Simulated scan of single mutants.
Amino acid sequence: MNKFLPTSTAGSLPKPSWLAQPETLWSAWRLADQDLAEGRQDALSLSLHEQDLAGIDIVSDGEQTRQHFVTTFIEHLNGVDFEKRETVRIRDRYDASVPSVVDAVSRSRPVFVDDARFLRQQTRKPIKWALPGPMTMVDTLYDNHYKSREKLAWEFAGILNEEARELVAAGVDIIQFDEPAFNVFFDEVNDWGIAALERASAGLTCETAVHICYGYGIEANTDWKESLGSEWRQYEAIFPRLQRSHLDMVSLECHNSRVPMDLIELIRGKKVMVGAIDVASRSVETAEEVARTLRNALRFVDADKLYPSTNCGMAPLPRDVARGKLKALSAGAALVRAELTGNQAA
């Protein structure tokens, strides 16, 4: 792995057409039963190959074994009824039909551990595995049992910790918790959201990260972004508390966003995954565009703590566009890396 500016992805990569509908977020599987199990592993291997070809340093499963970044995990838990659905407001942004919590939630078996073990067998590179964060899980369900977002989040935090510990034992090097809800519910984040996240990551022997983005490039998210004004300062409300947490890394959205880069100073000391690829655009960035974002970030974070990444997941993008963006990420990081090593040599 590159010592400076190791590259990674924040989330999903496009699935092959034989597994799911192309360019469709959260598409239903096109296979079933044993064919699906084998197909997901084949897709995982293909995703790893494409990351290797692009020169990605820290690889992931690209969410090839998941239909949805939150509910696929929840599907395997007790206490949630997927037949009993209610319409709720997701991220205070759009309405969606979601499953209901009808009883105490619990985890009776591992969810992603076999997939992680399979990926570990395919590569010697560091592996980053994403799990939904407790607050985002709560915000993706209708709670008809606990009647308290905080209580449900703490229950999910304990379950996530069980899963994360087994993922580490299976060979995962970085556990990333996806918390897009952190960009919306600021009072809850500071009151109990970060504490619940620390519970989910307690005692892990791997590195831990939290991914806080502005969402996929879907209409509801792009419309919301347009309403946020000339500067997106949501991170400012939560970074001070997050800086005091025991999380190792923070993954944030930067390229083509209106996030003031100097907000990174609020999490000084943390490793920062800087989103240098815009997943809401089908235009493939040039290496110089990526490098420009990284150089800007280096004004506020030390080089040994900067990890170039994507803004969010790329599942809805055409595969050739996603491949191009991954290559641009690696090429842009290589440009800045060469500048850094050249400066050191001088």
Score class of each variant (00 low, 15 high):
Ala280Gln: 10
Cys312Gly: 04
Met1Trp: 06
Leu119Ile: 13
Ala276Pro: 11
Leu152Arg: 15
Thr208His: 05
Arg165Lys: 15
Gln67Lys: 08
Leu152Pro: 13
Gly313Arg: 06
Gln122Ile: 15
Val59Asn: 03
Ser230Tyr: 00
Leu335Asp: 00
Arg295Gly: 12
Ala220Gln: 12
Thr72Met: 00
Val336Leu: 10
Met135His: 07
Glu38Lys: 13
Trp26Ala: 10
Asn183Gly: 13
Asp95Cys: 10
Leu204Met: 09
Val101Glu: 02
Leu119His: 13
Pro110Cys: 00
Thr310Cys: 05
Ala237Glu: 13
Lys325Glu: 10
Tyr216Met: 08
Glu226Ala: 14
Arg282Thr: 01
Arg299Trp: 08
Asn183Ser: 15
Ile264Gln: 06
Arg282Gly: 01
Leu306Val: 06
Asn183Met: 13
Ile218Gln: 13
Glu188Pro: 05
Asp278Gly: 05
Asn144Asp: 11
Arg233Pro: 13
Ser148Gly: 01
Phe186Thr: 08
Ala54Gly: 05
Met137His: 09
Arg282Asn: 09
Gly217Cys: 05
Glu285Trp: 11
Asn183Ile: 14
Arg120Gly: 08
Met135Asp: 09
Val105Leu: 08
Arg120Glu: 11
Arg233Leu: 15
Pro308Glu: 01
His145Thr: 00
Leu141Gly: 09
Glu289Lys: 04
Leu5Met: 05
Glu207Asp: 11
Val172Asn: 07
Leu167Cys: 05
Arg337Ala: 07
Tyr214Thr: 00
Arg319Met: 07
Pro16Asp: 00
Phe73Thr: 13
Lys147Ile: 12
Ile194Glu: 03
Ala333Cys: 14
Ala338Trp: 01
Val111Pro: 11
Glu288Asn: 14
Glu83Ser: 09
Val321Arg: 02
Met137Ser: 13
Lys128Phe: 04
Asp187Pro: 01
Ala287Tyr: 09
Gly158Lys: 12
Gln122Asn: 15
Ile277Gln: 05
Leu247Asn: 03
Leu131Thr: 05
Asp278Leu: 04
Gly332His: 10
Val301Lys: 01
Ser108Met: 03
Ala169Cys: 12
Ala209Cys: 14
Pro180Gln: 04
Leu5His: 08
Val259Glu: 01
Ala104Gly: 04
Gly217Thr: 09
Gly275Met: 10
Ala10Gly: 03
Arg30Cys: 14
Gly229Ala: 10
Tyr307Gln: 04
Gly171Asn: 07
Leu5Asp: 03
Phe186Pro: 08
Leu329His: 01
Met314Val: 07
Ala315Cys: 14
Val168Glu: 15
Arg89Tyr: 09
Ala10Tyr: 08
Gln234Leu: 11
Arg124Pro: 03
Asp81Gln: 06
Asp61Tyr: 06
Asp35Gly: 06
Val80Asn: 04
